[in-house]
Design a protein around this nucleic acid. Sequence first.
DNA 1: ATATAAGCGAGACGGTACGTCACGTCTTTGT
DNA 2: ACAAAGACGTGACGTACCGTCTCGCTTATAT
Lengths: 216, 216, 216, 216
Amino acid sequence: MATSKHAGGRPREQRVDTAIAAAVRAVIGESGYAGLTVDAVAATAGVGKASIYRRYATKQEMTFAVLLHDLREESPADTGTLHGDLSALTEQIAEQLRGPGAGTLTGLLADIRADPELRTRFAETFLAVERGIITTLLDRAITRGELTHRPDAALVQALLLGPLFAWLIVLDEDSARATELAHLVATVATNALTANLLPTETWSTPVTAPDAVPGR
Amino acid sequence: MATSKHAGGRPREQRVDTAIAAAVRAVIGESGYAGLTVDAVAATAGVGKASIYRRYATKQEMTFAVLLHDLREESPADTGTLHGDLSALTEQIAEQLRGPGAGTLTGLLADIRADPELRTRFAETFLAVERGIITTLLDRAITRGELTHRPDAALVQALLLGPLFAWLIVLDEDSARATELAHLVATVATNALTANLLPTETWSTPVTAPDAVPGR
Amino acid sequence: MATSKHAGGRPREQRVDTAIAAAVRAVIGESGYAGLTVDAVAATAGVGKASIYRRYATKQEMTFAVLLHDLREESPADTGTLHGDLSALTEQIAEQLRGPGAGTLTGLLADIRADPELRTRFAETFLAVERGIITTLLDRAITRGELTHRPDAALVQALLLGPLFAWLIVLDEDSARATELAHLVATVATNALTANLLPTETWSTPVTAPDAVPGR
Amino acid sequence: MATSKHAGGRPREQRVDTAIAAAVRAVIGESGYAGLTVDAVAATAGVGKASIYRRYATKQEMTFAVLLHDLREESPADTGTLHGDLSALTEQIAEQLRGPGAGTLTGLLADIRADPELRTRFAETFLAVERGIITTLLDRAITRGELTHRPDAALVQALLLGPLFAWLIVLDEDSARATELAHLVATVATNALTANLLPTETWSTPVTAPDAVPGR
DNA sequence: ATATAAGCGAGACGGTACGTCACGTCTTTGT
DNA sequence: ACAAAGACGTGACGTACCGTCTCGCTTATAT
């Protein structure tokens, strides 16, 4: 059994993909998200514009692919307690948000919102994955007996992600204190969950594709 | 001493200001934030481009002025309890975020982040006001005896604003449930505050003047 | 009666028109017709590309307008004899063909042929004018009694223009001898005309409307 | 001694040459000379682009080779009179010019003029051959006693080729009348020649290689 | 028989030019 | 002096072609 044999014609060079990704990051580092032009990326990467547009339909898609590739969520380790799990997750989120920088993230988010296709892909490949992690984590707590039932994961996600996002992106506060905030958020959320403040998911409002999550 | 006497020449028509503001909203409603061009605004408003640029230095400034004028925070009413006050505030925040739509807010936020001057004005005229409200609210709770000391307002702001922002803007969840989330957030925050989970503001991190940090 | 009053808005600057025309000629002189790019013209003229495209829909239209403006036919002087008139005309044609250079003319001609609209304009503004001159000239000869009837002007045009075009453009022969050839052509044509070798225009074949030809 | 033995490796398939030639003509017929792209030719021919570039260095060379292969001049038959010979030649020229269509010829001519190498080859393989034919024809007339001396062949060529070229290519007149014009041109040229209007070739201005012609 | 060499379709590659669009400025005519 | 209209220089966008290259494969001759 073969895996995608290569139909014919010259295969895409991985070197080009690498160069594009590096160039995107370099140009953003140099000129910011606003100064990110396709020509600049092509020039920096030593690559033709056509090679970029052969891979990505628009500049936004390119940026999305390059920048969000780094942000891929990893499966959370079991720390033994709900608070520990939540703490690990919020720390990871803080880490990810800190990376690209506030300016980049707002620009990227705006671009994602403007393009319906990107929006869907963002929801599916990023938000849904994170939500899946949260679900896993909550189920573990139920198994342990820390929780009696599973609350709405979307609300939990908002409670966890929101404060960190606000701190780093909206308020533009000191990123050094993000870890501190991460722990605070984890504690607050743990309290809320164990106090049964959150309703269960009764209205079924999945981000996009709930079935695509657990199988992963 | 008179206030802005009008030095000479034809005075500006207020009609033009109104038309611009209306046109900005109309164009965004029609074509989204991405389709918001100065030419489109001028044409829709029946106004020359020069009249726009006589008022605002850049397109971003125009958008900022028009869209964030509505969002001016109002002084909070004293509901008698900390939880009531927080609930009123989060509801107000939810209301404001629901208004312009997610696409508009992300775009606007990106533009604000890209322009240092706008960033400062955003922090001063919006974030700082909101933070002031929070401070007022916390002081009231201390007076009532609900709190023993005043925790860091920036952290409180992140905890209150964040989940709503995430829900409406990042996760793009059902805006009808925003009120529900607002109450949840208020409750969670009240619990955290009364449990003394938040540290007091020891590092002095004002929103408006990061350069005022004493370490300098 | 006024001549196109200027409806409103900033008027086109004639300086730009002039600069574009000069730049087109400069770039062709520098890099040949093949090296004539819109960007080069814009840069040389110190003009934005948009200002070029505001005037001309395509590069070809620009080239057409600039290069064929010089070639405008002037009304022929009456020399007193048919041979003298023809000689003056062929000399003028030779002069015009010699000007832009063979490479430019072939390129321009190819572009004109490729665009139906340009083709029509070329026929109307250039070929038809030249043919009108020929008609005038023949009528004069009839008045003088040198000719008994007016032969088909299209055939005369082919006989006069053709050899010079072939010599300079197709065969790329010595342009210094073009004047000699012009006189020869005039003499040969005079002989043919006075010998009544050419038929009268019976089929009605206007330059501008070739589709009206019945034989098709 | 063998002719090009084939050093090793797979020999070129003649099928490919044929397919390319057919495709060039097909694409021109479909999209005109302007729409003649190498990719289109390759796709139409069912051939890789590399196979085209293995045969021709540039697109222009390909076009040249394919389109001018048909136009090869054939040796003229002796009709017994100068006028008959000239008539046969002009008819043949008219036939050749009628074939590819005006748009194609102007485009091709422009490309030939732009490339020095093609220009040389065009002069040598096409113009010089035609001039050789004219020379032969004139010599025959001298032998017959119709002419007393041999006039400049380049001038004769211009007189013969020019009007037909102008009629079909520049003026874009009815190609059905080209034969009529061919006879007219032959008559006019015969008159001019027998009237000794043309000078002999005193300045020696061969197209390219005069010695390469007669020996054939 | 097998190695060597080149041709083959397919299509990716770096470049270059095209024509479009938006920005923020400037210049006209009116009021 | 402000207003509407719209031209101006700048610069990025996404598309199209050119001529080159690299794949995996096929087809000849040379050993």
